[in-house]
Amino acid sequence: MANHGNHAASGAHGHDHGHGGHHDLEALRQMGFWLFLITDCILFGTLFATYIVLHNNTAGGPTASELFEMPGVIAETFILLTSSFTSGLAVLCMNRGNRQGLIGWLAVTAILGAAFIGLEVSEFLKMVDEGAKISTSAFLSGFYTLVGTHGLHVSVGLCWMIALMFQLRKHGITSVTRRKVNVISLYWHFLDVVWIFVFTIVYMMGVM
């Protein structure tokens, strides 16, 4: 798990040569990143499959409907949704050559992302406190791993976004930083999509 989270960043930071003027190269990297997202899709697909197969195996422990508290989850959902939108606004600013606006919207996105992580961590802590641990049942193993992997992805994205803001301040909007912004916003939209399915399959179907 930790392993994968780091891989997420290596996919993005990993291929990084050349600078200004090597436009084709940046397009290659963007394509490479898209393929990485496809692999990430499959990673989450496998976690979903595991969760779905095991989600009824509560082994006498708490069930989904006993455990989940929707207000927090709904807040998380709208926060992440909004952050997906603001990361798009950052790209729009970039395309207009507005560096301040770009960094500003990235900062807003990062703050929203941090709020999401904060809510999720407090949700997890509360559940553990109630005795619902990863070792309690197969259902909870699947739950923590699936949702936690998503949270780890968001956290890695946050660190990466902050690193990118420093680079934007130093280098401005070049073909390299432009590609990096495009790629992180794609990543962010992707995490939002994954969350939609976490929200639907894990939480909504869990409590209904």
Binding site: T50, V53, L54, N57, T58, A59, G61, I134, S135, T136, S137, A138, F139, S141, G142, Y144, T145
Partner: peptide, 13 residues
């Protein structure tokens, strides 16, 4: 972490 994905007990498969 002592999870139960593939164990024989606690619902693992």
């Amino acid at each position: 972490l002592g999870a139960h994905f593939f164990t024989l007990d606690a619902g693992g498969n």
